[in-house]
């Protein structure tokens, strides 16, 4: 559902505008990620607090990562672009496939995220057996930073 409503548009105008969206703005496929691999923000925050942080990859956009990211997270995005998947492969190449690994994005609402599903699919295909996907329903700000969980910005 869109956020607006009082000023009306003809159905044709909206359909035309949305049909013009380039691939970069097409809704993501995050809901296709199995529930069993989703990780709650509180659980990851607890792991970090306990000194048991897994390897964390941020697969979203660079501007978001530069502003704030989970401590220790490595930039490996964006998942919606070929060069982003190449970056993900590069970062993942040195990781053990049986060790805990968490990926996250949080650029926009979960069901519309253009990055996370592509990154999950790539790492699953590469054989990462202990892969979790951080579930951020709204975005990184609402579901992580605003909860008081730790963040740092890129140096």
């Amino acid at each position: 559902m869109t956020r607006f409503g009082l000023i009306s548009f003809s159905g044709c105008a909206i359909m035309l505008a949305l049909a013009l969206l380039p691939a970069a703005a097409q809704p993501g496929t995050a809901p296709a990620i199995p529930q069993t691999v989703l990780m709650k923000p509180a659980d990851l925050a607890n792991d970090i607090k306990a000194g048991k942080a897994p390897v964390i990859l941020q697969v979203g956009f660079s501007v978001l990562y530069q502003q704030a990211h989970i401590p220790g997270a490595i930039y490996a995005g964006p998942g919606n672009k070929e060069e982003g998947i190449d970056n993900l492969k590069k970062q993942a190449a040195s990781l053990a496939k049986d060790k805990p690994l968490v990926i996250y994005c949080g650029c926009c609402p979960w069901e519309k995220c253009p990055n996370i599903a592509a990154a999950w699919k790539e790492l699953t295909a590469e054989g990462f057996k202990n892969l979790k996907v951080l579930y951020l329903p709204q975005n990184f700000g609402e579901d992580w930073a605003d909860k008081g969980y730790p963040v740092v910005k890129a140096s």
Binding site: T2, R3, F4, I7, A17, L21, P78, C107, C108
Partner: peptide, 20 residues
């Protein structure tokens, strides 16, 4: 951002708000 579907969905409405 260009990659943000809800942002793009809003664009026609923002244009209408500016006009109104």
């Amino acid at each position: 951002a260009s990659w943000c579907p809800p942002c793009i969905e809003e664009a026609p409405h923002l244009i209408a708000l500016q006009k109104a």
